[in-house]
Design a protein around this nucleic acid. Structure first.
Lengths: 170, 170
DNA sequence: CTTGGAAAGTCAACAAGGCTGACATAATAT
DNA sequence: ATATTATGTCAGCCTTGTTGACTTTCCAAG
């Protein structure tokens, strides 16, 4: 934590200019505008398939952790089972997701993407990656590290756990 | 500018590891989880007032640019006038927003927060700033700079203009 | 073996907040 | 005069979230 030489705004010898309300407000607005861009490309594609963001999120995390249970997905997505169920039902009916009864615990349903589901997942995630790749490249590796660091701090601790447990494998 | 692939280091003398699909996916998930945290605190407050995020956004940008017109707000928020109108009507009826007929162009309505509106704005934004302040502090100034840099690149160019024009004054 | 409770699914009803389309009004611009 | 712009409004639709009530399945503890 280096010292910064410049002028005021310090309570403990550090330059805390980056913590002014104005800086914070800039960050808040940046999050707002960026999130719109972040979802714009997948949204366009989903529209063609008559799906929405809720379907995208389910597809993403099923792809990420094949065989995950409904309850686990519920935790990650933070919606009610009724809400998720509506989405899953559509995806299963349309043949994008397969639901397998658990072997150890046959109450549980394990979720998998079918080939068709994987195809859509790839289309969606690649569209989203194109934008992120361009942003990362323009901003550079140091900026990317900071980006991720701040985002991680913004998360609720509960969600941060989920995020981190996705780091390695499911 | 090609370079894709997973794990090899450089094609042009630079280390491009931060552009791997895995890194991109991590960023995508970080955005997802962080945005949830980002909106969580205001959402809780809004719930008490029977308002939603749409009201928050309107309040935020009216506070940011007092006297802004409906059309300008429409551009920034990226929703239809019907959608915005529903929200504005509620805020005006409840005495949080005041709508003044334009003087030069009397078709326009200029929007202002009343004292009551400013009070809610302050409550909402302070709740959001508490989280952001903690995140900024934990991540440090360099990370914050990178955070903002990447977010700005993620925005649609159209929205980036709006973001940037909010930098100074309205 | 019975039973309590967990996991999952389902139905119904509702709300917020998006959307489109059609139309009204007022005022500016041509 | 007429066209265009800015705004407002009504009606209706969709997605995606919510609660509440209820059922089915099935594991596990008594």
């Amino acid at each position: 934590m280096s010292e910064r030489g410049s002028a005021h705004a310090s309570t403990s010898g550090e330059n805390l200019l980056f913590l002014t309300d104005d800086q914070l407000r800039r960050g808040i607005e940046a999050m707002f505008f960026a999130y719109r861009g972040f979802t714009a490309d997948p949204d366009r594609i989903l529209n063609d398939y008559a799906y929405g963001r809720a379907h995208h999120r389910a597809i993403h995390f099923i792809n990420r952790s094949p065989g995950t249970t409904v309850n686990n997905l519920l935790d990650i997505l933070g919606v009610t089972k009724q809400s998720l169920n509506r989405v899953l039902r559509a995806l299963i009916e349309d043949g994008l997701v397969e639901s397998q009864v658990g072997k150890r615990d046959r109450r549980e349903r394990h979720l998998f993407l079918t080939d068709k589901g994987q195809a859509l997942e790839k289309e969606l995630s690649e569209a989203q990656r194109v934008r992120m790749r361009a942003a990362y490249r323009d901003a550079g590796p140091d900026a990317v590290a900071g980006f991720r660091k701040v985002l991680e701090q913004i998360m609720d601790p509960e969600l941060r756990k989920h995020f981190q447990s996705l780091k390695d494998g499911s």
